[in-house]
Design a protein around this nucleic acid. Structure first.
Length: 98
DNA sequence: TATTTGACCAAGA
DNA sequence: ATCTTGGCCAAAT
């Protein structure tokens, strides 16, 4: 089971309308490879089965998305998440901590 | 085998 | 609040 596969497995557990952060995912995997988590998601081969759009930066800002941040924000908005620019409002209320 | 590349993050200025 | 810097580590090159 590779590192990337473990990342994908965790991602599947994020419920609709909630988000998590790269850091939380990494910590859940017992590592500090925050960046490696992002890397794995970037090359996510299981989209959209794995909801990688529900992973954001530690401060609630959208950091990246294979198909563009605008697309990512649109998806999250559809799930009820609100934004100010590319930053989530009230992050603590929609943050999924497992 | 070695180097480079990020969808990161914490701390300092 | 915003910007820069240094450290992080799996994967791709």
């Amino acid at each position: 089971m590779s590192f990337s596969e473990r990342v994908y497995r965790l991602c599947r557990a994020i419920p609709e309308g909630k988000v998590t952060t790269y850091k939380i995912l990494a910590e859940k995997l017992g590592v500090r490879a925050y960046r490696a988590v992002g890397n794995a998601l970037n090359r996510n081969p299981y989209a959209p089965e794995v909801p990688c759009h529900r992973v954001v930066g530690g401060d609630g800002s959208l950091v990246g998305f294979a198909h563009g941040l605008v697309k990512k924000r649109a998806l999250l908005r559809k799930e009820g998440i609100r934004f100010r620019g590319f930053r989530i409002i009230e992050l603590d209320k929609v943050l999924y901590r497992f």
